[in-house]
Design a protein around this nucleic acid. Structure first.
Lengths: 208, 208
DNA sequence: TTCACGCTGTGAATTCATACACAGCCTATC
DNA sequence: GATAGGCTGTGTATGAATTCACAGCGTGAA
């Protein structure tokens, strides 16, 4: 199981880093796989496998050095030149994404937002400048944006995705409940909240 | 592969239903597995397996009858008595969930919202009444709420989850990036948007 | 009537992710 | 110095989900 970290692993690495960053502030030096596993909600064996994937190694007696581990995770997760993301659709969901991301990560930031509504254009929302949709391609190119977040209605999602792709975006986080047709070069991840809620309702009923 | 539909399958069933509901309006009668597969973004074989899971059957020449299929999916997905959900945390994310759900499903609706901010309490947000956090247990019990949506800051998430569970909730959709400690009786699904964005950024960089 | 086509339904194979289980090692203790 | 304990690192097993591949069948055409 060598080679690049898998889809699932990358997600957990991100979670580990966030948890460890908190821990660094409390001043603890070492962390055992079972401790990290407990706060991350996974098994200890899983944690150790994930550590293998990033080449981190711990000592049987001290566990993993927290600072080194954060460093190691960051080397794996972050693009050395940083990644810039664009948000398309400044509705409730878009603002939620912006406020989550207010300067959390030095190497990953949302540097532009786009919306169709004229009264939003030109304003600064949650620390991010809002542009008109017409400016999208140009801004994406100028700012070297490689990640797009689609938070527009389903009917507009495909057009936005295509335009982002043509402008050079190589990863898309899509909240619209439609299957995007994009080139296999471009990575995309869908988050379908309606589906998630229906699923929870389903299994809630089954467990009662 | 008999027995109850799996986690992944249930998600897709929800998606199929939404896509088919649109199609019903256009008046088409039958649908082939490869057609549904194309719009859902999965393989044809996957669609047929999922159809097996709900006991739907199609004809080799006409495909699956759309109306019957929607009916069949609804029988599987919906609780006959309906499910009621509570939203905790009426921030941007909470409002996004509410607006997504404005009367979409007859058998699944968000019937109450809760927030700590006094100025939100008593107001109606996106068609949903907002209560104070103090009223949570009582309202959940009174309205027979079985599903909870946690859209509060991480620091408050565990307390909310425990209180919901004690009040009878059996399914939780959690947007806070923490691992909830809940009874195994209760189903929970986590949506971690920060993690998702970091993952997209990771794979975007890798493909460029 | 016969034939060929295209789709469904499904056993079997494959791929992927997770959990198990233990050898090896380092430290602390006696 | 010897010993015991506990954690890491990893081969192996298990389990889940997806895809492959094809038999069976109903329909429309010749």
């Amino acid at each position: 199981m060598d080679g690049p970290p898998s889809y699932e692993t990358v997600g957990r690495l991100s979670r580990y880093r966030r948890l460890l960053t908190r821990r660094v502030e409390t001043g603890s030096e070492g962390v055992y796989s079972h401790e990290l596993a407990a706060v991350a909600g996974v098994s200890a064996a899983q944690v150790r496998r994930d550590m293998m994937a990033v080449g981190a190694n711990g000592s049987p007696t001290r566990g993993y050095n927290v600072e080194k581990l954060v460093e190691c995770l960051s080397v794996e997760l972050d693009d050395p030149e940083g990644s810039r993301a664009a948000l398309v659709g400044v509705g409730n969901l878009g603002r939620a994404m912006l406020s989550f991301f207010q300067g959390r990560r030095p190497k990953l930031s949302i540097v532009a937002a786009f919306d169709r509504e004229p009264y939003k254009v030109g304003r600064v929302v949650c620390g991010c400048r809002c542009y008109s949709m017409d400016e999208m391609s140009q801004v994406v190119i100028d700012k070297k944006i490689t990640v797009g977040i689609i938070a527009v209605p389903s009917s507009a999602a495909q057009a936005v995705a295509s335009e982002l792709e043509d402008a050079g975006v190589r990863g898309i986080l899509n909240f619209a409940p439609v299957a995007l047709r994009i080139s296999p070069e471009t990575f995309s991840e869908d988050i379908d909240m309606t589906m998630a809620l229906e699923r929870v309702a389903y299994f809630a009923g089954r467990n009662s």
